[in-house]
Simulated scan of single mutants.
Amino acid sequence: MKIGHPLAEVFGFPPDNFSDMAERYRINRLCPYNNKVPSCTKDKALDPLGVCSVTTGEDIAITCPIRFRQDWLVIEDAAKFFFKQGVSWTSLQEIKLKDANGISAGNIDFVLAAYDEQDRIIDFGSLEIQSVYISGNIRMPFHYYMEDRKNRSNMTWTQTNVRPDYLSSSRKRLVPQMIYKGSILKSWNKKQVVALHKPFFETIPNLPVVEPEQADIAWMIYELNLDKTLNQYNIEHIQTVYTCFEHALEKIVTPAPGPINDFIDTLQKKLDEKLNNQPDAPALNDIINC
């Protein structure tokens, strides 16, 4: 359904959901999706930006990584890739990863660790959750809505242009994570999972696919589906793409080159502009050589 503002979910619920539960989460600024604390802490702990996902007309984009934690399906799905059935395992959050020089390569969102009967770790895999950056000011329509929710749930918002920025999300977050953290994990022969929303995955180049048994990285793709009876979105795992780490990384970091003639045309235009706009005053070299 097309709406005239960018808010798809506010504190876990569509803006026009005024059930007792939805209002309780908004009034108390709570997170329904297993944040590390009961409250939403996005952007600012004392003034959280409680927007889980945004809409650009009919499409929705998940903008908060915590949104993927609904019912902990993402953890369960990752474990199925990492471990055989019947293995004891648990998940550990925000684990710092260091390189050979002791320099931090960043924190891993989740490490799933399998352990034996003596509680000793026997295997592990990493799970990175990729939400999308936002271009434009989302806090303004969020505050405007929160001030008068029932009268503004179907508002038309034109003051700021809010949209998901998939390109920056890939270049500034996904690619660096794969290069630094992913390369270390690959050197240890440990499997990796990247969880992301379907619209985000669709902006990534087509990846060379392998059989699940051959894969060392799995791309787990999720979608938000609206329960019209409850007027609430539920996350659903819709596809897993299995790849080899090196081939996937090479495909993602290597841009598709455009025609060289287009670049030459650009150079020619710049050269023509420069030559046709030479200053009338003599150059310094001309003065010195006189």
Rank of each mutant, 00 (worst) to 15 (best):
H5R: 09
P6D: 01
E9H: 07
P15W: 07
N17A: 12
F18M: 02
A22Q: 08
N35L: 06
N35R: 08
K36V: 14
C40R: 09
T41W: 05
K42Q: 11
D43S: 10
L49A: 13
V54L: 13
T55R: 15
I60A: 01
I62K: 01
T63N: 08
I66L: 06
R67W: 01
E76V: 09
W89T: 02
S91H: 08
E94S: 09
D99Y: 06
D99P: 05
G102K: 03
G106M: 01
D109E: 03
D109R: 01
F110E: 05
L112S: 03
L112A: 02
D116G: 07
I122Q: 11
D123G: 07
S126W: 03
L127E: 02
I129E: 02
Q130L: 05
V132F: 03
I134N: 02
S135K: 15
S135W: 10
Y145M: 04
Y145I: 05
E147L: 10
K150G: 14
K150Q: 15
W157F: 13
Q159I: 10
L167R: 12
S168F: 03
S170V: 13
S170P: 04
R171D: 11
V175S: 00
M178R: 06
M178L: 15
I179M: 09
I179W: 03
S187K: 12
K190N: 04
K191E: 03
V194E: 00
A195R: 00
P199R: 06
E202F: 14
P208L: 12
V210Y: 05
E213M: 02
Q214D: 15
A218R: 00
A218T: 01
I221Y: 02
N225R: 13
L226K: 10
D227Y: 06
N231L: 15
N231S: 14
N231Y: 13
Q239F: 06
Y242H: 01
Y242R: 00
P255W: 04
P255I: 04
P257F: 10
D262I: 07
F263E: 15
I264M: 14
K269L: 10
K270G: 12
K270F: 11
L271M: 13
E273L: 13
N276P: 04
N277R: 13
P279E: 05
D280R: 15
L284S: 11
I287D: 02
C290W: 14
